[in-house]
Design a protein around this nucleic acid. Structure first.
Lengths: 187, 187
DNA sequence: TGGCTGGTTCACCGATCAGTATACCTAGGA
DNA sequence: TCCTAGGTATACTGATCGGTGAACCAGCCA
């Protein structure tokens, strides 16, 4: 299926059901029968579209990653000051977190699927690698002295707020504040 | 069973097998049959000891928490300078992380078990609450101006390095360095 | 000696798991 | 008109899931 071509309606419905079910209840805990039922589709169709549960999981993560990158890029593009742009992913995180009370779908997927050969691993690692690279590029563009070290620290702060999201502490404001101060101190 | 009394040898063996299997392969992916087999014990005995898989999971996390707190307390006690003590949990993290390539067992457990009523939730939340409180107390003892905000930020850094542990980036050195600078700047 | 405790062996329960087989239906294009 | 692609419906596989029932056995203490 070329990227341009629209996905079949059945495929879209399966993917939508998979996204909510996998994220809300966990990947291992959700069976393919349940996803087929929730998307109003036969299990046969599901397997014709995705081939296996593992590939469906990878597709679910890839779709989620796509939506998330769009949100981050929007937040970055909205900034006029290059220094503000460096912490723009944290603004996106505020929106994203509100709809994601169960933490980071990619970290959760790695937690559930230990096998490094599982196709979900590539997707999850690529997502974090992309964010780290984005932080580095934005930091360099803003004229930071140590873009690599700064990017690593921003990534850790980002993942830390995501990871503590499901916990009953509100860590976001203090973290965003710290991220901004780090950038300004390094410019 | 009182706390003083030694656990039965069967119970200890079950718990040991559960620790490695649950952490390495995931909680949902590991069945009670497998744990019974690895600990050289009957499933009947396992259920006599723990009652249900959910309680066995909670016991596994509680045992892991106990070992981890011991490690952290040791690291704190080793410090002479109160300012160094604030970041002592990060020294413990270096040791801990080396044996824990699959990230934080407690975060992973929350990822796999969405039901807030699951007994594992209490254990996991208590673990993070304890660490947050420890950071606050250590910061206050070191004379920090804003112990609450500092503790939140240190917790986020701590969870961030744990969460990025399974990823192919080395985030620990930059993070520990940042944590130390934060403490010194706030003293 | 007798009873209790903690452990054993083994068979079993209904439900669910990922994945497949077979056959039928239907809309669209050549 | 016929073929094909994508979908449906239903039934099925063997394995595994969490959890239970029943009978038995060895050591320990009174």
């Amino acid at each position: 299926m070329p990227a341009q071509q629209a996905a079949s309606p059945a495929r879209s419905r399966i993917l939508a059901a998979a996204e909510t079910l996998f994220y809300d209840r966990g990947i291992t805990a959700v069976g393919v029968d349940l996803i087929a039922e929730h998307s109003g589709v036969t299990k046969r169709t599901l397997y014709n579209q995705f081939g296996s549960k593992a590939r469906l999981v990878a597709a679910y993560l890839a779709e989620r990653d796509r939506r998330w990158r769009d949100l981050v890029r929007e937040a970055v593009d909205r900034c006029e000051d290059p220094a503000d742009a460096v912490t723009a992913p944290f603004d996106a995180l505020r929106t994203w977190n509100a709809a994601s009370p169960r933490g980071c779908a990619f970290i959760n997927a790695l937690a559930e699927l230990p096998d490094p050969a599982h196709p979900a691993h590539r997707v999850a690692e690529d997502q974090k690698r992309w964010l780290l690279g984005l932080f580095r590029d934005l930091a360099a563009a803003a004229g930071c002295a140590e873009p690599d070290a700064l990017a690593t620290r921003l990534l850790v702060l980002h993942e830390g707020t995501l990871a503590t999201g499901p916990l009953p502490f509100d860590t976001l404001p203090d973290t965003v504040d710290l991220a901004r101060r780090l950038v300004r101190a390094d410019v």
